[in-house]
Amino acid sequence: MIEQITEKLKNQFNGRFRINETRPGIYQLFLPLYHEDGDMIEMYLQEENDMWKISDYAMALMRLSYSYEVDTENKEKIFQKIISENGLSEDNGNIFITANDEQLYPSILQFATGISKVSSMRYFKREVIDSLFFEQLKEYIYSELTNYKPEEKVFPLKERDDLEAYYAFHPNGYPVYLFGVKDVPKARLAAICCLEFQKQQQKFRSYVVHEDFEKLSKKDRARLTSACDKQFISLDDFRENATIFLEREK
């Protein structure tokens, strides 16, 4: 069986490999290694100082830039970390690796792996990361705060299905409503909810967990501060202090 598999893979790899001289002395390699959009990973080979240099001539960054820019210090740091941890180098956008004759094949695979990881930086887009905030909040609540009987998606006013508390805790006789806030619309909705619940003379406490308190404008922060009972300025703040505050509600 092993022989059959080996033979099959040898044939397929060999059959799926070709090379083309794209510019004098620069050869494009065609191997069945693809990006997620189905395009083949661009790889160029040239001889330099008796070594092989495998480069992408900045094609990975060009591709990434369709949807994601490496335009902050942090992003650059992550990019450089991917490059270095995958044994690659980078010069003005050109990602490359050098290899001797013996190491050429494993270096090509190592290069392709690194390029795939650079391309995956598009998953760091804000909307993808943002969605993790609510998941992480939920995960923490259901792993650490179960003593306070968390309830998800609570509508305290029966006639108002547009005013929703993300969670309700029951540390004592009255509920503690929790709102997650990661942007301006969510901040405003949380403020409206708190004010409406108060108007109906409900007995409750309101907590807000911010993804990033500093991201909100001064006016939005003032509105929330006036409307709700307690704000946690970040998820870390909530993780650190939620129990202390919920205990005080008892």
Binding site: R16, R18, F30, P32, Y34, G38, D39, M40, E42, M59
Partner: peptide
């Protein structure tokens, strides 16, 4: 024509 695509190898 930057390279091949999975749909049209070679």
């Amino acid at each position: 024509p930057h390279g091949e695509h999975r749909q049209f190898p070679h």
